Computed example of a mutant assay.
Amino acid sequence: MSLFKVFDIAGSGMSAQSVRLNTTASNLANANSVSTTEEGAYRSRQPLFQAALDRAAGGNDATVGVRVLGIMESSAEPQRLFEPGNPQADEEGYVYKSNVNIAEEMANMISASRSFQNNIEVLNTSKDLMMRTLNLGR
């Protein structure tokens, strides 16, 4: 495996965690939103990742990175709340609140942030090791 492939692998991990952070931010921003209908209520979203195997042309060299397959929407039901004074209440006085779990999203945000930081550490350590190797030739 080429020494430079570590940058591709860590970069794909950083890109994936960036998508995860953005999705979490969107979920947190819509955590307290309400809707008139159950179908219109915001539903929590999560990115779906897949290991991406890259083979070098004409060789047995292979590296594994991360690829985002898409964003999946939660199938959990939104909360039905009785709020007859809410302007978005239906004719029975109910509104539908998003199904976002704030504690779960905060844990996702911390995990994604730490994973992103770990990939940065991999990049910096690899760079430092390559620079030290180059300096050995002096």
Rank of each mutant, 00 (worst) to 15 (best):
R45G: 01
Y94S: 07
T24F: 05
G70W: 13
S33D: 10
Q79Y: 09
G59R: 05
G65T: 04
A107K: 00
L129V: 10
G85K: 14
N86C: 09
K127Y: 07
N32D: 15
R132Y: 03
L69G: 13
S111T: 15
M106F: 05
N27C: 07
D61I: 13
R45F: 04
L69A: 09
A31T: 02
T63R: 07
F82G: 12
N32G: 13
N99I: 08
F116W: 10
S44M: 15
A52D: 13
S75N: 13
N60I: 07
L48I: 15
S18C: 07
L123D: 01
N99R: 09
G137R: 14
A25G: 14
I9M: 04
R20C: 03
S33M: 04
E77L: 14
T133H: 03
E91S: 15
R55N: 13
A76M: 12
N99H: 10
I110F: 01
L28Y: 00
E73L: 08
A51F: 00
A52C: 07
S44N: 11
V19H: 01
F82E: 10
R45P: 02
L123Y: 15
S26G: 12
Q117W: 05
A10S: 13
P47L: 01
E38Y: 02
D8T: 13
D8I: 08
S15T: 13
Q117I: 00
S12C: 06
T24E: 02
R80I: 10
N30W: 04
N60G: 15
L28G: 03
G93E: 08
P47Q: 12
T23F: 01
S33F: 06
Q117F: 05
S2W: 03
A89G: 10
M109D: 09
G59A: 11
S33R: 12
R67C: 03
N99C: 03
N118Y: 14
S111M: 13
R132E: 15
I9C: 00
K127S: 12
F4C: 01
L53I: 14
N27G: 02
G65P: 01
Q50G: 05
R43N: 09
M130V: 10
I71S: 00
D8K: 11
S26Y: 08
E92G: 09
E73F: 00
E104K: 11
P78V: 12
A89N: 10
V100R: 04
N119M: 01
L81Y: 00
L3V: 11
I9N: 01
L136H: 08
I71M: 06
L123P: 06
V100Y: 04
L28N: 05
A89S: 14
K97E: 12
V34H: 08
V122A: 08
S44H: 10
G65M: 06
P84D: 12
N119V: 04
D61S: 13
E39Y: 09
A10K: 07
S18H: 12
S111R: 14
L28I: 13
N30V: 07
R67N: 12
I110G: 05
S33K: 05
T125S: 15
N27K: 08
E38Q: 15
N22Y: 01
T125N: 14
F49P: 06
